[in-house]
């Protein structure tokens, strides 16, 4: 379970999240919607451990992981994250990008997992390319493969289908939902497209000016 208790996040004088309290059960699928600047990305980054809350606490699986005085490291939280921009490491090939994100100790069959991800994401032919040799859609698929590489229990996706054509988007969405189903993973899915939100299904959380207006 992911629990946010009265979480507030300021950036200087700008309030990004204001007194947000949420409970997300293990294995639950949650769609987060809201206009630009409503705090969707900040919410994901706080859960991932990439931001320190200004006030409030965040717990994962009953363990307090973020408070204003301390944040447990992101790599210990069992989280996979697809960023709004793909954020692929430019000095690494597709394979190296995915392999670097894998905890070799926690995944006994790294090579098999890698092979399977390349197959699922249709990246086999692109395996040795660098990010600057990929199209927007290809980069997005690599970013998704990287997020799934660790078999995370919690998958945070920030507009994951941007730059994909409709056919690829439908295939990727199937893959994401299958993954969540098979792994019983918690899925937090940020999108501003209503059709996409409907296809994902699950609980809808709507944010506006940093506050939860529907949960």
């Amino acid at each position: 379970m992911i629990t946010l208790h009265q979480v507030t996040k300021h950036y200087g004088s700008v309030m990004s999240l204001d007194d947000v309290s949420l409970e997300i059960s293990a294995g639950e699928i949650v769609v987060i919607q809201g206009p630009s600047g409503s705090g969707k990305t900040t919410l994901l980054r706080l859960i991932a451990g990439l931001e320190t809350p200004t006030r409030g606490q965040i717990s994962i699986a009953g363990e307090q992981v973020s408070t204003p005085s301390g944040v447990t490291p992101a790599h210990t939280r069992g989280i996979g994250l697809v960023f709004q921009r793909s954020a692929l490491w430019p000095h690494m090939t597709v394979v190296q990008n995915i392999r670097f994100a894998m905890h070799e100790l926690s995944i006994p069959h790294t090579a098999d997992r890698l092979e399977q991800l390349l197959e699922d994401m249709m990246l086999k032919k692109l395996a040795n390319r660098y990010p600057n040799q990929l199209s927007g859609g290809e980069a997005r698929r690599v970013a998704l493969a990287r997020a799934l590489s660790n078999n995370p229990h919690r998958l945070l996706l920030d507009e994951p289908l941007t730059s994909l054509d409709p056919e690829q988007a439908a295939r990727m969405l199937d893959l994401i939902l299958n993954y969540a189903d098979i792994q019983q993973a918690t899925l937090l899915y940020v999108t501003h497209i209503s059709d996409e939100a409907n296809q994902v299904g699950g609980r809808l959380i709507r944010l506006q000016t940093g506050r939860v207006v529907e949960a």
């Binding site: 490291p73 790599h75 490491w89 670097f100 990287r146 660790n150």
Partner: peptide
């Protein structure tokens, strides 16, 4: 974002 995406799976 490149640093953040590494911190999700690797130590600092």
């Amino acid at each position: 974002d490149l640093i953040d995406s590494s911190r999700l799976s690797r130590t600092d």
